[in-house]
Design a protein around this nucleic acid. Structure first.
Lengths: 209, 209
DNA sequence: TTTTTATTGTTGCATTTGCAACATTTTACA
DNA sequence: TGTAAAATGTTGCAAATGCAACAATAAAAA
């Protein structure tokens, strides 16, 4: 995953943050980050910690859209946070640097040497997030829990370049991500084991396909 | 939806296309656009017509990820086209302008007056595509056909700012978009009508909720 | 350490869904 | 205009899924 300041030196990063008039805030665990957001577009960079973007629909049902961890960004660019449909909760103690969107083209910055690099990083990040969404859509369009599981496992396997890997989230979160009932998912995992497609030991998964 | 050349005059657009060393190609209907793609990142701008991005999984099942119509872009930035999982088919006669990604920061263009506008347009487009994906994810995470339909109808209703609207896609495509069996979806629509939630007349929908 | 909370594992049952297989209507195009 | 192709509408039935309601562990907090 690309970092917003990739290929920019520590010294230049500090300079850049100053030019961008950025603003750094620390949050405790389980806090709604966007509660005091104004009307302007902004980029929020997670320096340390983790933030979850959560959809809440008319009936109060919640879906985790994405987890943003250290080095990644969220904000009005990547999701319609202002619409009140999406809330941003810290999953742990988290530090965030805010940048107003209009500042990324202010007079001072566009003259700087590292401006092109910065903009390319930003575009690269948006691109990566699009691909993350695409991957999830591919998975969610599968009709059966079995297909969702097999594809999720294959995606993880390809990411780690191994048929053996350890889940990076727990089973409750996995059911949420796949958008299936947890107990039904556990049952399907049992069947997959019985039929020899996979082996599991806690969070350790081994694929036989 | 933002156009890549929004707020740039016709004259400057032509100049920009030249500076970007862009390349325009015409395609017939039902043609695989990306068959001759090389290794470099690129942006493809649909001048006229329509292109469908289609996922094909290991079992040969196809899912329409997105439809790109006139003024919109696709390419290696917005989806991992090179991975061979995604194919791009023209839905009708289509004209496409290709821009190599590295050219968007070439020496000549970054000196031009309209460079900042161009880059901001590009970022805005990526942003809009992210929001499109988010909307679809919100929908796909719903567990029942009924919820998917109700949310889709509500989204359309909000977009048109009216409880009465006409579907922009046909029922077969809608079932595909919601990722449900078409006949089951038709049955659910029948129930929704019987229970008074909606009224339909062909593609005309009226919401009573 | 003890207590509380969260996660995992399991099952029966009602409901929803996908699938198959049609008839009918509409649209495309030769 | 006539014919082929695509889209719509419908139904029975088997299979998959969600839901509820647990017990058993594991993890976190007091």
């Amino acid at each position: 995953m690309t970092n917003l300041f990739e290929n920019i030196s520590e010294k230049n990063m500090l300079k850049l943050k100053r030019i961008l008039k950025s603003n750094t805030v620390k949050y405790r665990k389980n806090v709604n980050v966007m509660s005091n957001v104004n009307q302007d577009d902004f980029i929020a960079l997670v320096d340390t910690g983790c933030v979850q973007l959560i959809f809440t629909d008319y009936d109060g049902n919640k879906t985790i859209l994405e987890e943003i961890t250290a080095g990644e960004i969220f904000g009005t660019l990547t999701s319609s946070i202002k619409s009140e449909e999406i809330t941003c909760m810290t999953k742990e103690e988290t530090q965030i640097t805010y940048i107003e969107y209009d500042e990324i083209t202010n007079d001072e910055i566009i003259k700087s040497d590292f401006y092109i690099i910065f903009i390319k990083n930003l575009i690269r990040i948006l691109t990566e997030q699009l691909n993350t969404r695409n991957t999830r859509i591919e998975l969610l369009t599968k009709r059966t829990t079995r297909d969702k599981l097999l594809i999720y496992f294959r995606q993880e396997s390809q990411k780690r370049k191994s048929k053996k890997f350890s889940l990076s989230i727990n089973y409750t979160e996995l059911a949420n991500y796949l958008s299936v009932d947890r107990s039904a998912m556990m049952r399907e995992i049992k069947y997959l084991k019985e039929e020899g497609f996979i082996e599991t030991n806690g969070k350790k998964i081994t694929l036989n396909y």
